[in-house]
Write a protein that binds this DNA or RNA. Structure first.
Ligand SMILES: [Zn+2]
Ligand SMILES: [Zn+2]
Length: 352
DNA sequence: CTTATCGGACCCTCAAACAT
DNA sequence: TGTTTGAGGGTCCGATAAGT
């Protein structure tokens, strides 16, 4: 119902500096998700025209111009090549306080999953790269849903009611929640019946998960929604995602990634990595940060099996009145040891 | 002030239930 | 057989505790 991040635009400063350490970027610029860096939403020379009023102009790579959340350009496109443009979605969402749905990655890496932090589709994920633990950045094993569970009779909803989107926005853009979805690839059986839902040619927003934008030569951008297969293959189409502007080379003068944070190329080409000392240190830090299963044994299971489903709770319970502490209930669910390599858990940090 | 922890809201997928 | 429902299994936001 309501959004979880809308409830507080708190000054969260962590986890966002994926483009690791550049100059600090102003937060909340035009992004639905405050704090997400925006790079080159538009040509730097276009209109910001700042720096003339005494203050030093912002570095070209962090110009605070409103952009779609997650849209980032480490550097401008090659000369003569226009910036990919995105259609501004219905302002209703922005102004009414309703934000577009949060997009999740299909599978977070084990490190991010245990830390409950945002991951991305790329496999040494941004967070792991940040901590220098690319080695342990692997997908967990998704538990298979058990079959044969009986369900009660359904309450049929009025179909007419579904015709209009909750917040009246995104007309025919793919039905309510499609604004984040790339090419409808996300849902094999999405409620396609709701609307014609033409496939976006260019999604208004890129998935927020995209942090890596500049890809070293030879590093083809991964498919998005289908998600890059674990082996690195894209989701069928070998063409770059329409949502991710892809400029194989940084223009002179731009260096989006500090040393050591390039995504590793697919063919095993060696890439400069973080200083070993830092890496190990970070690794240990990260390891300690694991907060699920291993350390506390909490969370992972929702314990929904006992009639009370967590979804019910989530949707029904108005914020502020959770007299629920459902988690404790979930804890019992000993059935899912998650997919965690477990043992490695927090200790795996081999903190040198 | 920064970073780690973790409760719980939100999201996605997909099988059961239901309609045709 | 196709569509809808709704729960399982998951991600990750954001408040807060702990550390520097
Ligand atoms: Zn990750
Ligand atoms: Zn990772």
């Amino acid at each position: 119902m309501v959004n979880d991040q809308a409830k507080s635009a708190g000054p969260v400063t962590q986890e966002h500096p994926y483009p690791p350490t550049m100059a600090p970027y102003p937060q909340g610029f035009g992004a639905t998700y405050p704090g997400y860096p925006i790079y080159f939403a538009q040509p730097p020379d276009a209109s910001h025209g700042d720096g003339s009023n005494g203050t030093t102009p912002a570095p070209p790579f962090m110009i605070p111009i409103a952009a779609a959340p997650g849209m980032l350009y480490p550097y401008p496109p090659p000369p003569g090549q226009p910036y990919p443009q995105f259609q501004q979605p219905a302002p209703a969402a922005a102004t009414s306080g309703a934000r577009p749905k949060r997009k999740q990655v299909k599978m977070a890496c084990t490190n991010c999953a245990t830390a409950c932090k945002r991951c991305d589709e790329i496999r040494p994920c941004g967070r792991c790269m940040k901590y220098g633990i690319q080695d342990s950045c692997v997908d967990g094993v998704r538990k298979e849903r058990q079959k044969g569970i009986k369900r009660g009779p359904y309450k049929r909803k009025n179909k007419a009611a579904t015709a209009e989107t909750p917040f009246g926005g995104f007309p025919a853009a793919g039905g309510g929640d499609s604004e984040w979805q790339a090419n409808g690839a996300s849902s094999s059986n999405a409620p396609s019946s709701a609307a014609p839902a033409p496939v976006h040619t260019v999604s208004p927003y890129p998935p927020e998960a995209f942090y890596h934008c500049f890809l070293p030569p030879g590093f083809a951008p991964p498919g998005h929604e289908g998600g890059p297969a674990p082996d690195g293959t894209s989701n069928g189409t070998s063409q770059p995602s329409a949502m991710v502007p892809y400029f194989p080379f940084p223009p002179p003068g731009y260096f989006p990634f500090p040393p050591g944070v390039y995504p590793s190329p697919p063919n095993g080409t060696q890439v400069p990595t973080m200083d070993p000392a830092d890496a190990s240190r970070n690794a240990s830090q990260l390891a300690e940060s694991e907060c699920r299963m291993e350390a506390t044994g909490k969370k992972r299971s929702k314990g929904g099996k006992n009639g009370e489903s967590k979804s019910k709770r989530a949707k029904a319970a108005p914020p502020g009145n959770n007299s629920e502490t459902s988690t404790s209930g979930g804890t019992v669910g000993g059935s899912d040891q998650a997919s965690e390599p477990g043992t490695n858990g927090p200790v795996e940090g081999d903190d040198a």
